[in-house]
Amino acid sequence: MSALGHHLLVEFTGCEAAVLADLDRVTAAMLEAARVSGATIVTHSFHHFSPHGVSGAVIIAESHLAIHTWPEYGFAAVDFFSCGGVDMNRGLACLKAAFDAQAETRLELERGPLRTVSP
């Protein structure tokens, strides 16, 4: 039996504030994370808040990768959902390095009704 999708909720702490406040750097890091995970990028949208912080999402054929940053706290919340064929660990390692995060915590959820997997 297998779930329809896997959802990772990740908190990066101790991040470089200047990176988390930079719209272009956050956007580039998220797109690169999607690429290295093997996801198929459909579109993306990011927004810089005043005085600081970035929110955005990369829509992938396999679902989505979203973020909200709090540079003043060195904190980023990332939401990565996939219905398969994506190496989420690779993508998240890319983000951790890009943000120079000192630590991360993860919550993993299986989403959707369980289905029988053919051998």
Rank of each mutant, 00 (worst) to 15 (best):
V36W: 01
G112R: 00
S45H: 10
E72Y: 13
G53L: 00
C15W: 13
R106P: 02
A77G: 15
T43Y: 07
D22A: 04
G112I: 02
R111M: 06
V42K: 07
T116V: 14
V78R: 05
G85I: 05
N89R: 13
N89L: 15
L9A: 15
H48N: 07
K96A: 15
G53M: 03
E32M: 00
T13M: 06
E62I: 04
A17G: 06
A66Q: 15
H6V: 14
A39M: 03
T40H: 12
M88V: 14
R35E: 13
M1D: 08
V36D: 06
G53H: 03
G56E: 03
E62W: 05
I60M: 15
A93N: 09
F46P: 02
A29Q: 07
A28R: 08
D100I: 00
V54I: 05
T40W: 02
H68G: 06
P113C: 01
T116A: 14
S45F: 09
S55K: 12
D79T: 03
A77F: 15
G53Y: 02
F75T: 14
I67P: 03
P113D: 09
A97R: 08
N89H: 13
L109M: 03
S45C: 03
R35P: 00
S55F: 06
K96G: 13
G85H: 01
S2G: 06
A3V: 03
V19P: 01
N89E: 15
H44S: 15
M88P: 09
A29D: 10
L9T: 11
